[in-house]
């Protein structure tokens, strides 16, 4: 379980810390600068900038869940028991709700 050889020291904790900090700083920098090209380009219903934010967020979430919460080192069956409901239900819900939101916006006009 937790006593794998790779977890002898603390370096892996600080590695993830620097990754999370780096990604967050990058996001904040993009958020302040608002590069025109990224704001102006539309991809899948929103700006390219927003898509980049969402991808970076998922990267951060991955590091937190897999390393900090140790899920990456649990048994495969446990890993999927926990991840699958979220990976199926959340995109499903988002798809329905956001499509409906878009439709509601058209109906208002």
């Amino acid at each position: 379980m937790a006593n794998n050889d790779e977890h002898k020291g603390n370096w892996w904790i600080w590695k993830v810390f620097w990754i999370l900090l780096g990604v967050t700083s990058f996001e904040v920098a993009l958020g302040i600068i608002q590069p025109e090209y990224l704001v102006g380009t539309q991809v899948l219903g929103t700006s390219l900038l927003n898509q980049i934010f969402i991808i970076l967020t998922l990267v951060k979430a991955g590091y937190i869940v897999l390393v900090f919460m140790h899920l990456g080192f649990e048994k495969k069956s446990l890993k999927w028991t926990i991840l699958l409901p979220a990976l199926i239900l959340i995109p499903y819900l988002l798809f329905i709700v956001l499509t409906e939101g878009d439709y509601a916006s058209i109906m208002m006009q």
Binding site: A86, L89, I90, L93, L94, V97, L98, E100, G101, D102, A104, S105, M108
Partner: peptide, 15 residues
């Protein structure tokens, strides 16, 4: 996720 989807709904609705 339900809360944030709800937020997303309103955001898409009010553009």
């Amino acid at each position: 996720s339900a809360f944030l989807s709800g937020y997303g709904f309103s955001r898409f609705k009010y553009g």
